[in-house]
Computed example of a mutant assay.
Amino acid sequence: MPCRTGDRSRRPPVLAGGLAFPSDFGTFYAPNISSDATAGIGGWSVEEFASAVTLGVSPTGKHYYPAFPYAAYQHMTPGDLADLFAYMQTLPADATPSLPHDVGFPFNIRRGLGLWKLAFVPEQFVLEAGSPVLERGRYLAEGLAHCAECHTPRNAVGGLDRSAWMAGAPNPSGKGKIPNITPAALDWSEGDLVEYFTSGFTPEYDSAGGEMAEVVENLSQLPRADREAIAAYVKALPAVP
């Protein structure tokens, strides 16, 4: 979870939060989700963790902003949620307080997020999967890896435009654009994609940079079959210019 780690070189990671996410609606800060019982989530139950991750609701009933990608994590299986929670409890505790989000009116009124979820967080997957490999790739790409959070454009109120799924989007930092990875723009083979997910090298012998370098670092730790499933998913996406 590199988004939650201030010093990304530390191993094991310390999920103390603090990383800033600038957006059109203000700046969001990743919270402390270390095992600290007061500043982090060390005092949560697995049920409270599941509610936060898949529903975007805190143990006190407060809606989380969708900068936390619960719209993708809603697809996680109970087993994977329980395993993730158990793993996070083994990581170091850190007492650093979470930073408040810098979000102005009217987006600072969290009550409206319940309506936002009803409108823009459908339960269905996007891609129709006709094989076990595509089902696995869809689960990983649309769920755990939450690829669409960066690669899909958003509407005026921040909802993902599912008609342009994975067709690229402005970089939230304001620098450049997240690329279109549908077959309309990406002509790599499945083998090319698997190699990229493994080593970060493109068919042109360029290499992944920026945030994608960290994504590749994580993807490279998956079983090869999972990287192949994600590659099959990318190749099966509808072409969107």
Rank of each mutant, 00 (worst) to 15 (best):
M1H: 12
R4H: 14
G6W: 15
D7T: 11
R8M: 09
R8K: 09
P12H: 05
P13L: 06
V14I: 13
L15E: 01
A16S: 12
G18I: 08
S34N: 09
I41A: 06
V46I: 11
S51Q: 08
A52E: 10
V53A: 03
T54K: 12
V57D: 02
G61H: 07
K62V: 15
Y64Q: 03
Y64H: 07
Y65R: 05
A67F: 02
F68I: 01
Y70G: 00
Q74Y: 08
M76W: 09
F85T: 04
L91A: 06
P92C: 07
T96R: 10
T96Y: 10
T96K: 08
P97Y: 09
P100H: 01
V103K: 07
F105P: 11
P106G: 11
F107T: 06
N108C: 13
I109S: 04
G114W: 00
G114T: 00
G114I: 00
L115T: 05
K117M: 12
P122M: 03
P122R: 02
Q124P: 01
V126W: 06
V126A: 10
A129R: 06
A129H: 04
S131T: 14
L134G: 01
L134K: 12
R136D: 07
Y139V: 02
E142D: 03
E149C: 10
C150L: 13
C150N: 00
H151M: 14
T152M: 14
R154L: 14
R154A: 13
R154E: 07
R154H: 04
A156H: 00
A156K: 01
G158H: 02
L160A: 01
R162K: 11
R162P: 02
M166L: 14
G168E: 02
G168C: 10
A169L: 12
A169S: 12
G174H: 09
K175W: 13
I178E: 05
P179Y: 11
N180K: 07
T182Y: 10
P183C: 06
A184Q: 04
S189C: 12
E190T: 06
L193F: 13
V194K: 08
F197I: 09
F201P: 04
D206L: 15
S207H: 11
S207K: 09
S207P: 14
G209I: 15
G210Y: 03
A213Y: 06
V216C: 04
E217N: 10
L219T: 15
L222V: 11
P223I: 03
R224W: 14
A225R: 06
I230T: 00
A231M: 09
K235P: 10
A236G: 05
A236E: 02
A239H: 11
A239I: 08
P241V: 02
